[in-house]
Simulated scan of single mutants.
Amino acid sequence: MPELPDVEGFRRVLASCGQGRRIERVDVADPGVLRGVSVRRLREELRGRTLAEPKRHGKWLIARTDGGPALLLHFGMTGELLCCPPDDPPHPYDRVLLALSGDRGLRYRDLRKLQGLRLAATEADIDRILDRQGPDALAVDRDTFTQLLAGRRGRIKAVLMDQSVVAGLGNLLTDEILWRARTAPARPANRLGEDDYRRLHSTLRRVLRSSVRDGRVPDRPSWLTGHRDDPDPRCPRCGGHLRRDRIAGRTTVWCPHCQNGAEAG
């Protein structure tokens, strides 16, 4: 599932491939990924516009145009953004294609189509679409982070994955951060101490910086992510057996020995 590092990678794709280029043609292969906008309106509003510097907030990518609307992209579980010549043969999961000046093309590719593309005519429309998003995980400061978590009674794994609390964290990032911070995923967020919040925030920043450089959550041998899918997954820190649980509807992998050994705090 694309998380903040993946979407930051897509932002770089959009910047290097599209920024400053004119949209010559909009092809919609599957209207099922359009949210709140028709195929006709998408074409009419975007054709002839020049792509401006893209921005990202959490898992959302914001493709502004000079003097025109913004295209907001969310990648759901399986989406991605690719740069390729506009005349390349289409992939079966290419849903929307933008042909750009200079023989460039952008493709929104998605297998499951759980999210998609929205069009925002004004900055107020962008704010409305992103209204329920919390602060971006890469930018949130420690005091704000602490206040957000201390006021939540849910389990820390579920709270960190709640996009209205902190935007950008998904299943892999959250498990990695909690493992590195030695915090059990089922501990109530509001029952952590100041040292816990401080450690979680500093760990979050380190994990995100490293992941953003890779454009994804890396599956290195020294990372929990590198072992979560092993047949007999073991902790890369202590060598103990990793445990799989279901928290917030997602498969959660953690080390009972390293992560406080306390599910309930």
Rank of each mutant, 00 (worst) to 15 (best):
P69M: 07
G226T: 12
A121E: 13
R107C: 09
T203M: 09
T252G: 01
Q259F: 00
L224Q: 01
R246Q: 09
M1N: 02
F75T: 01
D87P: 14
L130N: 12
A184R: 04
A262W: 02
G154N: 03
L117Y: 07
P2D: 13
H227W: 11
G193A: 07
D110F: 02
R12P: 15
I62V: 15
R243Q: 12
H57P: 02
R206E: 15
S202I: 10
R104M: 12
A139Y: 03
G79E: 02
T225L: 12
V7I: 09
A121K: 14
D175A: 14
Y108P: 03
A189T: 03
R209P: 00
A264P: 02
A264W: 08
D245M: 08
Q115L: 00
E263L: 08
K113P: 02
I156P: 06
S211N: 11
Q115N: 01
I247N: 02
G193L: 05
L98C: 04
P89Q: 09
V33R: 01
R191W: 01
R250N: 06
V140W: 06
T146L: 05
A121R: 15
A264F: 07
R142V: 11
L173I: 04
G249F: 08
E123S: 11
D162V: 04
L82N: 02
D131M: 07
P86K: 04
G76H: 12
G134C: 08
A52D: 15
L114C: 07
G170A: 06
Q147W: 11
R244L: 14
L149R: 01
L106N: 07
G9H: 14
D88A: 15
P5H: 00
D27G: 05
I126Y: 11
E53A: 09
L224F: 09
G9L: 08
R198F: 09
R107G: 02
R11K: 15
T122F: 06
E24A: 14
S210A: 14
R198Q: 14
A181P: 01
V207K: 07
R95Q: 13
L114G: 04
P89Y: 14
R12L: 10
G193Q: 14
R198N: 03
D229N: 13
D30I: 10
P256K: 04
L82A: 13
F75Y: 10
L106K: 06
T174N: 03
R234A: 14
D219I: 00
L208K: 04
W254E: 05
A181G: 07
R25W: 10
A189L: 00
L172A: 03
T146K: 11
C238Q: 05
R95H: 04
V207W: 04
L4M: 06
P92F: 10
R237V: 14
L192Q: 03
A262M: 08
R198W: 10
L160Q: 08
L46F: 07
Y197L: 03
V166M: 00
G48L: 09
E176V: 03
K157G: 06
G18I: 11
H201S: 02
L160K: 06
M77N: 09
